[in-house]
Computed example of a mutant assay.
Amino acid sequence: MTVPQKPVRAAGCVLWRRAPSGDGIELALIRRPKWWDWSHPKGKLKRGEEARDGAMRETLEETGMTCELGPELPTLRYLVDNRPKEVRYWAAEATGGSFEPSREVDRMLWLPPAAAYRYLTQERDKELVAALLSALHVTGEGL
Rank of each mutant, 00 (worst) to 15 (best):
W90S: 01
L109G: 02
V3R: 06
H137I: 00
L133Q: 05
M108N: 07
A135T: 13
L60G: 13
G70D: 10
A115Q: 14
M65F: 15
K46V: 09
L60V: 12
E26T: 05
W38T: 10
E127P: 02
Y119M: 09
L136W: 12
R32G: 03
A131S: 14
R9Y: 08
A130C: 10
S134Y: 01
G54C: 08
Y78N: 04
R83N: 12
G96F: 06
A11T: 09
G142E: 07
V129T: 15
A55E: 04
R18G: 08
G140M: 07
V105C: 02
A114P: 13
T63H: 01
R17K: 14
G64S: 08
P4Q: 12
A51S: 15
V129L: 02
E58H: 12
G64A: 08
L45F: 07
D23T: 14
T66G: 03
V80H: 03
T95M: 04
G54R: 05
R77H: 06
P7D: 10
P33C: 03
L76W: 01
T121E: 05
K46I: 05
A10Q: 07
W110S: 11
M108W: 04
E62N: 06
V80M: 05
E72L: 00
A114N: 14
G64W: 04
D37T: 14
A51Y: 06
W38G: 12
H40Y: 15
L120N: 10
E49W: 02
E61P: 01
E26D: 05
G48M: 02
L73P: 09
E127W: 04
D125L: 00
F99T: 05
P112H: 03
A28T: 14
T63I: 01
L29E: 10
R9G: 06
S39Q: 12
G24W: 01
R107S: 13
T139W: 13
R118K: 13
R124I: 13
R17G: 09
L15K: 11
W38V: 10
E141W: 09
V14Q: 10
M56P: 00
G97L: 06
D106C: 05
L45D: 09
L73M: 00
D23F: 01
L79F: 13
A91I: 14
R88W: 06
Y117A: 04
P41G: 06
T59S: 01
E62I: 02
E50K: 11
G24T: 09
L73V: 11
V80C: 00
G96L: 05
H40I: 11
N82D: 15
E100G: 03
A115G: 00
V105W: 03
P101N: 07
W35S: 11
R124F: 08
E127F: 04
R18N: 12
D37Q: 05
G43Y: 11
E61F: 09
E86V: 11
Y117M: 11
K34P: 04
L109M: 04
W90L: 00
A131P: 04
T66Y: 00
G48N: 08
I30Q: 09
Y89L: 01
V80S: 04
G22Q: 06
M1E: 12
K85A: 07
S134N: 08
A51Q: 10
A91H: 11
L73R: 03
E141Y: 11
W38L: 08
E72Q: 13
L143F: 15
K46P: 00
P71K: 08
R83I: 15
P74W: 00
A94F: 04
